[in-house]
Amino acid sequence: MIETIIRPEIALDDFLPIFVSSAFVLVFGSLYVGVYTAVKVNMLKKWMMVFAYFFWILTCYMLYIMGSLMHVDAFTAKALVVAMVGYLMLPHAVYYMQHRVHEENEHCDV
């Protein structure tokens, strides 16, 4: 017997939410790192960092909506989870390094 794959159609009413949620994935995603950066360079107060993580949560939620409306398969779903965890850690890693660069430079050669 042949294995039958039926690729699910995207329902007509789902197109708009897909477009909107995928746009918001990036909007919230950039707000997360944006607020994170602004706090790090003292453009915003320390306690505002809460909002950075809040935006990360919204990013995850938007990606979840998008993924479920598009009927992504199990493997892709797992990959998306890994991607979001990676994204959570990304700015931490970047600013750890930036911090080191500044430490090494601004205290010596300037």
Partner: peptide
Amino acid sequence: LPLVAMFIHVLYDWGKTQG
């Protein structure tokens, strides 16, 4: 991702030097 990084980079350098 790199486009976000480029955006953040401008914000970061601007904030740092103005700071």
